[in-house]
Simulated scan of single mutants.
Amino acid sequence: MNENLKNAYISEVIKYLPLSLKEDIRMELSANIDAQMENENMSLEDVLLDLGHPKQLAYSYLDNKEYVIGPRYKESYYQTLKLLIPLIWTIIIALDLISFIFTGDYSFSEMFESLNQATFVVFTYVTIGFIIAEKVNKNQDQNKDWHPSQIDIKKHSQKSWSRSSSYVGIIFTILFLVIINRFPHLIGINVIGENTNIPFFNLNDFDTYKTWLNIALIISATRLFLRIFFTEYNKINSSISFILNLISLVIVLAIILNPNLLNPNLSQELANLGFPELFSFNFIHNLFRLAGLIIFIVFTIDSYKELKYGFYNN
Results as ranks from 00 to 15, higher is better:
H156D: 12
S157H: 15
Q158L: 13
K159G: 12
S160P: 11
R163W: 09
S164K: 15
S166G: 12
V168K: 12
G169A: 03
I170W: 01
I170Q: 08
I170T: 01
I171F: 06
F172L: 09
T173L: 12
I174G: 08
I174F: 14
L175P: 08
L175S: 12
F176H: 10
F176T: 06
L177H: 05
L177W: 03
V178A: 06
I179K: 11
I180S: 02
I180E: 01
N181Q: 09
N181A: 09
F183D: 05
F183Q: 02
H185R: 12
H185F: 10
L186I: 09
I187Y: 03
G188A: 08
I189C: 02
V191M: 11
V191P: 09
I192E: 13
I192H: 13
G193D: 11
E194Y: 14
N195L: 11
T196P: 03
I198H: 03
I198T: 02
P199K: 04
F201D: 02
F201I: 02
F201V: 05
N202G: 02
L203M: 09
L203D: 09
N204A: 13
N204D: 15
D205A: 14
F206Q: 01
D207M: 14
T208S: 15
T208Q: 15
Y209S: 10
Y209M: 04
K210F: 00
T211G: 12
T211L: 14
W212Y: 13
L213D: 00
N214T: 04
L217D: 03
I218L: 14
I219F: 04
S220N: 13
T222W: 11
L224R: 11
F225P: 03
L226G: 06
R227H: 12
I228P: 05
F229Q: 03
F229R: 05
F229W: 07
F230K: 15
F230N: 14
F230V: 12
Y233C: 01
N234T: 02
I236T: 12
S238P: 05
S238K: 01
S239R: 02
I240A: 00
S241R: 07
F242P: 00
N245A: 09
I247D: 00
V252E: 05
I255N: 01
I256A: 01
N258K: 06
N258Y: 05
P259H: 04
N260S: 14
L262F: 03
L262C: 02
L262I: 04
N263T: 02
N263S: 00
S267N: 10
Q268P: 09
E269W: 04
E269Q: 12
E269T: 06
L270K: 07
